[in-house]
Simulated scan of single mutants.
Amino acid sequence: MFISNALNSSIRQRIAKGVAGATLATTALTAMSAIAVAQADFPQRDIRMIVPWSAGGGADAISRKISSLAEESLPTSIYVENIGGAVTATGLMQLGQARPDGHTIGVLTYDSVVTLPRGNMVPGYSLDNLEPFARVTQEADAIVVSEQSGYSSYEELIAAAEADPGTVRIGVAPEGSGPYLAVRRLEAATGVSFNVISYPGSSTAEAEALLSGEIDAAISSLGDFSGILSSGDALGVVELSGSQNAAYPDVPPISEFGIDLETGSFIVLAAPANTPEDVIETLETTYHEAYQSEEFQEWVTSIGVAPGWLGSEEVNEWIESYQQKTFDAMDELNL
């Protein structure tokens, strides 16, 4: 009897273990299936697009336009949230800390890729926390003068700066930014000296300063100043590029004046690091379709911005190369 009870007990234990093992296996399979379904069904809710600049600038406008077209291919919406501050770090640190499921994405600009990494300006900020999946634009910087400045050409602006050093007021983003580096490189190339005034935030502040007569000129992309250019309150006098911008045939590239100086900005789209590959693929494909649409191509060129697509396999290599070239230029100027 004792032996029989012991035997029965042993059998019951084995059965219980078997059931528990089967239950665990079933639970694991169910969880794995749920993850697979979740990824296959991406997106499951609206996608949050973080633009790390205030509303109204070029990066904001381009991000909103391409996202509005991208969401047409999705069952959910893409909504833009402007989170400025700390030269894009505030918004992008939120992006890096978001759940890596593709439902939060964001925008990288020059400052995100160059200014912040160069100076280690914000503790905790790192591109390692982000996964770039596309570049959608690459636009040259340009010099724009206000209508009330009295200048109507690049030659007149340089002649005035040469004749009276430090008096021509030119607005740029803060030290470390692309436009700031551009004006210092221009001074080195031409031998002139400007009164450089920096404006934090987007190019909206520089546009307002041009309108008020606070500055004579400013450096940013022609797209950033499209509003005051179309109204006639400002005039583009040169683009810091080696080729002519077809959208602005009256604005010559600086190469026409014998100067080798190409600087500019770009829009890169990114997700948090460790976002699943299939989700990245869906995001890349969706935005690529929006990028290729006739509406986006016509719109982006109409505001003077050059479309320039790079996919997830190319954009990281491009960022690394761009960083190195820019850091080398900064080293030459001791910036």
Rank of each mutant, 00 (worst) to 15 (best):
V192R: 07
L229E: 04
S241D: 15
S212N: 13
G201V: 02
S193R: 13
E239A: 13
D233W: 09
L240T: 01
L186T: 07
G213S: 10
L235C: 00
S221P: 00
A234V: 09
N195I: 00
L229P: 06
E239R: 11
G213W: 08
G236L: 05
L229I: 10
S221K: 13
I197H: 02
A207M: 14
S243M: 10
A247Y: 07
L235F: 03
N245H: 08
G191W: 07
E208W: 02
A188S: 14
A246W: 01
S193K: 15
G223F: 03
D216G: 04
A246S: 15
R184V: 01
A207N: 04
A207C: 01
R185Q: 15
D233N: 14
S230R: 15
A218H: 07
I197E: 14
S203F: 12
V237W: 05
L229A: 02
E206M: 15
S243N: 13
F194Y: 13
E208P: 00
P200E: 11
A188W: 01
A188G: 01
S212E: 12
L222V: 06
A234F: 04
A246C: 03
A218R: 01
D233C: 00
G236E: 03
G191Q: 08
S198V: 08
L211Q: 13
V238S: 06
G236H: 04
Q244L: 03
A189R: 13
Q244G: 02
N245L: 05
E214W: 02
V238N: 06
A217D: 03
E239L: 04
I228K: 02
E206N: 11
A217F: 07
Q244T: 02
V237Y: 08
L235S: 06
N245W: 05
E208D: 15
S203W: 10
A234H: 09
A205N: 11
N245C: 11
V192A: 12
N245K: 08
I215N: 08
E206G: 06
V237N: 09
V183C: 04
R185G: 06
A247G: 07
A209S: 14
S202I: 00
V192I: 14
L235V: 11
T204G: 00
S193G: 00
V238E: 03
Y199A: 04
S226T: 11
A234Q: 08
S243K: 14
G213K: 12
G227K: 15
I219D: 04
E206Y: 00
Q244F: 01
